[in-house]
Design a protein around this nucleic acid. Structure first.
Length: 721
DNA sequence: TCGTTAACATTTTTT
DNA sequence: ATGTTAACGA
């Protein structure tokens, strides 16, 4: 009989079977972290140390939670229903639905995503007549969310200046608005849950008694509030296991607090720290490079990856003249690897920022290489889907002013800014929601066919018409009754949007038939509310093309947790990677270096690093020098593979150790402001110069009929005039 | 109310 | 270069 424990290395085994004590697991990249986590849960259950209901397992992404459940059901013949395995937000949602009264929330509270939250802030600032030049909505939103994530309510924030005082007032008013409307933003889900347990001794005791084993994934990414949230669930006999890798902490910019790892040691684990350092993913050279790089960071707990496999191939470095040449090189290599039998899905093009994908996409498209770009707009974030969801939200909770504002005049039904302003005033005066105010107004009005009364009639009819219908039919009814379907049908470019709306019905059908998903949320508010929560908490994979063999394009951030046979990392230039914005930030370079570490450790067998001397950025050519990170890798592991020139690498590859002088001075004879003569266009003045050497081109104003011209110096015959 | 234009900003991202 | 949003005029 095979055991769960078969095939684990000694450290993994120690982590999986650790008896009754809390521990911190430092799990390096590719060290079998997820396996340890799921095997431990399975082992605890199988050996009868805990019932499935006694487990609390928390992840960051829905994907990770799903993966954990899938692996768990493969290992154990148990029903995962009712088990608390999920994301911080998903579990908070469950807690708050169950105890909505104690938490001071309506049962059907709606969840605001980041965009909804921003429009709520805008609406608030408008109602307070705030000058949005002085207080940008984005900044106010950032302030509110930031403080919530630090666990702070308005009255707990220390104020030293009038500006902050104002922000705190907005925060308080914003909370009031949300309470009035029955909506909850992302950080509020956590803060509300935390406060609920912190204040309610009975509830806290209940959950602490229940959860004997608490496990957290990606612990290095937790923020302060998440850690405090966890601590509320941990009772005297709870055993905690936090799994993380400080070297892969790349989300400090959004509030992740690596200090949590030290605090966790102090609070729970003590010396109980297990390091998983054996890597099952990459060949030796790749790991040596990663180790050498990350050693340069000062603040780390310390860890060194090793592998039982051989060194493998050297890391290939390509130095391009331009981003275009870089892209061309990558495409050629990809095609060569494909010819040798590597599937495209097993190769990835990684970059620091999304803007870099454009050139790559262009080159791939021209070469006919299928590719798939990750990131970008997700399904539930699309405009048409948001409109549809807003109608549904309004059906579930008419007092949701955000949803009301979004659709009251969409599709347009002749309700202008004037009307809405009056409505907002009336609502504010009467202390009611927009919907209530609109109803009052409609009742007083004679003509109920159009305008605001028309909208009120529409919603009332919709409420009635959807009564008792199954979820997909509710949506279908809404799409037609609201006029959304007709609107996008009439629109020139509306076909895609219509398709997405149909896809929404599909999603609802799938959701309504998925016992797991329904079981999770159905008990707490009905299918519509469950579906809306699902839409808010799980933005939806931008699927399409799954299953086909396509090259993978994504940012380094998005690649975390993934692995590929071959990885191409482009744009290794100072200012781009490390990003220039990071240089001003506290510990910015160290986070960039961790990011580089993540990128390197994605590769199983082959790793390409490339950089370009010139690159189009924001419509201008920028000249960059090679990233310091290449210089931080042991030269012996690198191989320069430029084929077009420098067929052989320069001795010792020293130029990378001291990246000094790639910046060229502008030696061109053509300068801005200079008068020049052209054979055909006559005399003009140089207004702009771009590029280097043969690539150089100048913009000249010839005036009159010829006007502005861009001329390539390689071809245009110019002389000073 | 709607369509056009000017201004603007532009690292990374999940929930 | 490019996409998005705010302001403006028909």
């Amino acid at each position: 009989m095979t055991s769960l424990l078969d095939g684990l290395n000694p450290e993994q085994l120690a982590a999986v079977t650790l008896p009754g004590q809390s521990a911190l697991i430092l799990a390096g990249a590719g060290s079998g972290k997820t396996r340890v986590l799921t095997t431990r849960i399975a082992w605890l259950i199988q050996t009868g140390q805990v019932s499935p209901l006694g487990i609390l397992a928390v992840t960051f992404t829905n994907k990770a939670a799903k993966e954990m459940l899938t692996r768990l059901t493969a290992m154990l013949p148990i029903n995962t229903r009712g088990m608390w395995v999920g994301t911080f937000h998903g579990l908070s949602n469950r807690l708050l639905r169950t105890h909505h009264r104690e938490a001071g929330l309506p049962q059907l509270f709606q969840i605001l995503d980041t965009a909804d939250q921003l429009s709520a802030v805008k609406r608030l600032l408008k109602s307070l007549n705030v000058d949005t030049e002085k207080f940008e909505p984005k900044k106010v939103q950032y302030f509110i969310s930031g403080n919530k994530e630090a666990g702070l309510r308005p009255q707990q924030i220390e104020v030293f200046d009038p500006y902050t005082r104002r922000l705190v007032e907005f925060y308080a008013a914003y909370d009031e608005q949300c309470n009035r409307e029955g909506v909850v933003d992302f950080p509020e889900l956590l803060l509300r849950s935390y406060e609920l347990l912190a204040r309610n001794d009975v509830l806290r005791a209940h959950y602490q008694e229940r959860f004997r084993h608490i496990l957290v994934d990606e612990f290095q990414d937790t923020n302060r509030l998440q850690y405090r949230w966890l601590k509320q669930f941990a009772g005297a006999q709870s055993v905690l296991m936090a799994v993380g890798d400080d070297d892969q902490s790349i989300y400090a910019f959004r509030g992740a607090h690596t200090g949590n790892m030290n605090e966790f040691q102090r609070d729970y684990a003590g010396d109980n720290v297990i390091k998983l350092e054996q890597n099952y993913r990459s060949h030796g050279n790749i790991l040596d490079a990663a180790n050498a790089l990350i050693t340069q960071n000062q603040s780390r707990l310390g860890k060194n990856l090793w592998t039982a496999e051989g060194s493998g191939e050297p890391i290939r470095v390509f130095e391009a003249y331009s981003d275009q040449e870089e892209a061309g090189f990558i495409v050629e290599e990809v095609k060569a690897l494909q010819r040798e039998g590597t599937a495209l899905v097993d190769m990835a093009l990684l970059y620091r920022s999304n803007a870099q994908s454009r050139v790559l996409e262009h080159a791939l498209f021209s070469a006919g290489v299928p590719y798939r770009v990750y990131g970008g707009l997700r399904f539930f974030e699309r405009q048409e889907v948001k409109h549809a969801l807003a109608y549904l939200r309004l059906l579930a909770n008419p007092d949701d002013d955000g949803a009301f504002s979004r659709v009251v005049n969409f599709p347009t039904r002749g309700i202008g800014a004037r009307t809405l302003e009056q409505l907002a005033d009336a609502a504010q005066a009467g202390g009611t929601s927009l919907w209530q105010a609109a109803r009052a107004k409609a009742d007083a009005s004679k003509d109920s066919a159009k305008g605001l009364p028309g909208f009120v009639a529409l919603m009332l009819a919709m409420q009635e018409g959807t009564q008792g219908l199954p979820l997909p039919e509710v949506i279908e009814h809404m799409l037609h009754a609201s006029g959304l379907a007709a609107h996008y049908l009439a629109e020139k470019e509306g076909a895609d949007r219509l398709e997405n709306l149909n896809e929404l019905i599909n999603a609802a059908t799938v959701f309504a038939n998925d016992p797991e998903a329904m079981a999770e949320l159905d008990e707490v508010g009905g299918p519509l509310a469950s579906f809306l929560a699902h839409a808010a908490l799980e933005a939806g994979d931008h699927q399409a093309g799954a299953g086909t063999d396509a090259l993978q394009l994504m940012t380094v951030h998005a690649a975390k947790g993934l692995e590929f046979h071959a990885v191409f990392l482009g744009g290794l230039e100072e200012g781009l990677f490390p990003h220039e914005q990071s240089m001003n930030e506290q510990d910015g370079i160290e986070e960039e270096r961790r990011l580089m570490y993540v990128a390197i450790t994605r590769a199983r067998r082959r790793l390409y690093l490339s950089h370009a001397q010139s690159r189009m950025l924001h419509g201008q050519t920028r000249y960059g020098i090679v990233s310091r990170f290449i210089g931080e890798l042991p030269p012996a592991l690198l191989k320069l593979v430029n084929t077009r020139r420098n067929a052989a690498a320069p001795a010792g590859y020293d130029s990378y150790v001291a990246p000094a002088s790639s910046v060229r001075s502008n030696t061109s004879p053509w300068r801005i402001g200079m008068n020049v003569r052209h054979a055909k266009f006559g005399v003009g003045v140089v207004v702009n110069v771009e590029g280097q050497g043969d690539d150089m081109r100048v913009q000249i104003n010839f005036g009159g009929a010829n006007g502005m011209k861009w001329l390539a110096l390689e071809y245009a015959k110019l002389e000073p005039a």
